[in-house]
Amino acid sequence: MDFRFDIVYEYAPLLLKGTLLTIWISLLGILFGSILGLVIGLGKMSPKRILNFPASAYINFFRGTPLLVQVLIVHFGVVPAIYGSTNSIIAAVLALSLNSAAYTAEIYRAGIQSIDKGQREAAYSLGMTNRQAMRHIIIPQAVKRMIPAFGNEFIVLIKDSSLVSIIAVPELMYWGKAMQTQYYKIWEPYLTAALIYFILTYSLNKLLGYIERKV
């Protein structure tokens, strides 16, 4: 097997651009996903059915259907319905955000519910309102426990973002496929793409380990 480093070299600038876009859409996905996920997670924890039912339905839908299907629905359905025409990058960020919101909602819920109920009772017994107990007692403790789960979700999102190549977002996988189509080569584009994804997730993993030890 002759591995043609020359075509990898030729595609290097495009792969680099693609990698940067992969990082960007994943970052925006986890950012918007975390914000929306907080709202949905709080909704799911609410005892009021009018709040917890839609939140549960949302989580079930986005966790129970393939991301690929969600990407296609958002790209060909949701974005055109809002803007009149579609835009693949906006569709990609939107689909990833909506999807990760469902997972982060569960991270928030699990983190908050993992705090011993005695903590909340102690806060209440000291005259704190529900909001004060959350802000000063529950959330500061829960956030620490959420960090590893958030890290995992970010790593999953980086890998899953490769799916948006199907709607022609020029991210890393897109350029890998372009390279494969041009040269009819398998190993060069896909091994290179795999290696780059691995470097991203592995270094993120290390960074998270470091943050966990610090906190």
Binding site: Q119, A122, S125, I137, Q141
Partner: peptide
């Protein structure tokens, strides 16, 4: 009303 619990419930953070 002050309350003291069996498990103390101090805030560990």
């Amino acid at each position: 009303m002050g309350m003291v619990f069996q498990q103390f419930n101090l805030f560990p953070h």
